[in-house]
Amino acid sequence: MVNVGDRAPDFSLESDSGKEVGLADFPGKTVVLYFYPKDDTPGCTREAQAFSAGLDAFAEAGAVVLGVSRDSVDRHRKFRDKYDLGVTLLSDPDLVAHNAYGAYGEKTMYGKKVTGTIRSTFIIGPDRKVKHVFSGVKVDGHADAVLALVRGGDAPEAPPARRDAAKSAAKAPAKKAAAKAPAKPAAKPR
């Protein structure tokens, strides 16, 4: 995987608009390059929507956002149009950029080892050096964390994992039920 301080590998990939896009197309800009597994799946959709919603804020901070997956340009167009996405989507069916950045390889899904896209994000400075790397990204809150770093701040803490919230929610009704249960009568002396 590309590390902080490394020179970002250049690439030329076809975008959802049909144009070839590479790092050289954004002189003087910070580039947020995020790799995601598949168009129109729940996590990938939320991630693309979050980055799209923040595009004005990224632009104000001097950054552009590029999403990369193995999906075809046609599939990217359908995904973009279905969800009214503003982020530029790049097609990498031959894994050129994925492999250059280390965003493809072995990962664990549902407890099993599989080979596929490793959800990751790279913040690349105007000098084309990698400023920050997120690997094994959790989607919720991620775009906000990236924006905070692009603006020069610290990334906010990630929200708690859903399963932790679910456990808390499951325990809460039990506590309420226990609180509402009538107290056992005191034993009568004999």
Score class of each variant (00 low, 15 high):
Phe35Cys: 07
Lys171Leu: 12
Phe35Glu: 02
Glu157Ala: 15
Ala145His: 02
Glu157Met: 12
Lys82His: 14
Ala181Glu: 13
Lys38Trp: 09
Ala48Met: 07
Val31Tyr: 02
Gly102Asp: 03
Lys188His: 12
Phe122Pro: 02
Leu95Asp: 13
Phe134Cys: 08
Val32Leu: 07
Ala53Ser: 15
Met109Arg: 14
Pro9Gln: 05
Gly5Cys: 02
Gly136Leu: 08
Ser72Asn: 11
Ala50Ile: 03
Met1His: 13
Ser91Leu: 03
Val139Gly: 07
Ala57Arg: 14
Ala8His: 03
Ala63Ser: 10
Glu106Asp: 15
Gly152Glu: 09
Phe134Ile: 02
Phe51Lys: 02
Thr41Leu: 10
Tyr104Gln: 03
Ser91Gly: 12
Phe58Gly: 04
Gly153Trp: 10
Arg80Tyr: 10
Ala170Trp: 12
Ala63Ile: 05
Phe79Ile: 07
Pro126Glu: 06
Asp81Asn: 14
Ala50Lys: 03
Ala158Val: 11
Gly136Asp: 13
Glu60Phe: 05
Pro126Lys: 06
Gly152Pro: 09
Ser17Val: 10
Val130Asp: 05
Asn3Phe: 05
Met1Cys: 10
Ala59Cys: 12
Phe26Lys: 07
Ser12Trp: 04
Glu157Val: 11
Ser15Cys: 11
Phe51Leu: 04
Tyr101Asp: 01
Tyr110Val: 07
Pro156Cys: 11
Leu23Gln: 10
Ala63Pro: 06
Gly5Tyr: 05
Asp154Asn: 13
